[in-house]
Simulated scan of single mutants.
Amino acid sequence: MDLKFELLVLPVSDADRAKAFYEAVGFRLDVDYTDNEEFRVVHFTPPGSECSIIFGDGMTTAAPGSTQGLYLIVSDIEQAHAELVARGIEVSEIFHDAGGLLHHGHDAGDVVHNGPGQERLAGLHPDRASYGCYLTFSDPDGNGWVLQEVKQRLAGR
């Protein structure tokens, strides 16, 4: 059985503000539909992705900004950083995680201790290893995104 993850409902407080933000990031607007004053769905897809986000009015009871750890994969973290900055998006500096393949957290700062071997260190991974470099940004409500550089997938993925 194939199970394809295709849609995530994102909790936001202002659909128009969120729409402007995700357009600035470079996501593709697929749908902006309003049925009445109480229901609106705005549907975006990140470039190159098969998974989309939706938000709007009457979509979820989750608190705006409560979604964290949304990963977007890029092949060149430096290029992604430069492009987001050029688009006016406030992003973290590039960092790497001393402990492995998955950064645990979305905190700001050069060094964040998230447990043994899970230190957030400023700059590119020393070996520029796949899965080793990150940057973060948040939408206007605080929903947190992580960009991770993957140049080559691990075997079997």
Rank of each mutant, 00 (worst) to 15 (best):
V146Y: 06
S49V: 03
L101D: 14
Q68M: 14
E90T: 15
G144M: 13
R157E: 15
L72Q: 12
P126Y: 05
K151G: 12
Y131I: 06
H103L: 13
N143S: 08
G56F: 01
F95C: 08
H96G: 03
V111P: 00
L135H: 06
H103N: 12
L135I: 12
K4C: 08
R28P: 00
F5W: 11
L84G: 05
Q68Y: 11
H106A: 14
T67D: 06
E23S: 11
G26W: 04
F44M: 06
I53K: 00
E37M: 02
V25H: 07
H43K: 02
S130I: 04
S52W: 03
D97N: 15
L7F: 10
G58R: 01
V12Q: 01
V25Y: 10
G65M: 08
E50V: 12
I89K: 09
D141P: 01
Q68L: 15
R120L: 05
R17S: 04
G56M: 04
S52T: 06
M1R: 07
G144E: 14
H103T: 09
P64W: 05
H106R: 09
V111H: 01
S75C: 11
Y131M: 05
I53V: 13
N36V: 03
I73A: 08
D30I: 12
A62E: 14
V74M: 06
D76T: 12
A20C: 03
E93L: 09
I94G: 02
N114G: 15
F137W: 14
F95K: 01
G123S: 05
A98C: 08
G144N: 12
P126S: 10
G132H: 00
H125D: 08
Y22H: 01
T45M: 04
G156N: 03
P64K: 09
V74Q: 02
G65T: 06
G142L: 08
F39V: 03
G156Y: 03
P11F: 05
P46D: 09
G132W: 01
I89P: 09
V31A: 05
K19Y: 02
S49T: 04
G115L: 08
V42A: 00
E93P: 06
L101S: 13
R28D: 12
A80T: 14
L121P: 02
S66L: 09
V74F: 07
G56D: 01
A98I: 06
R153F: 14
I77S: 01
S49R: 04
I53L: 06
Y22A: 00
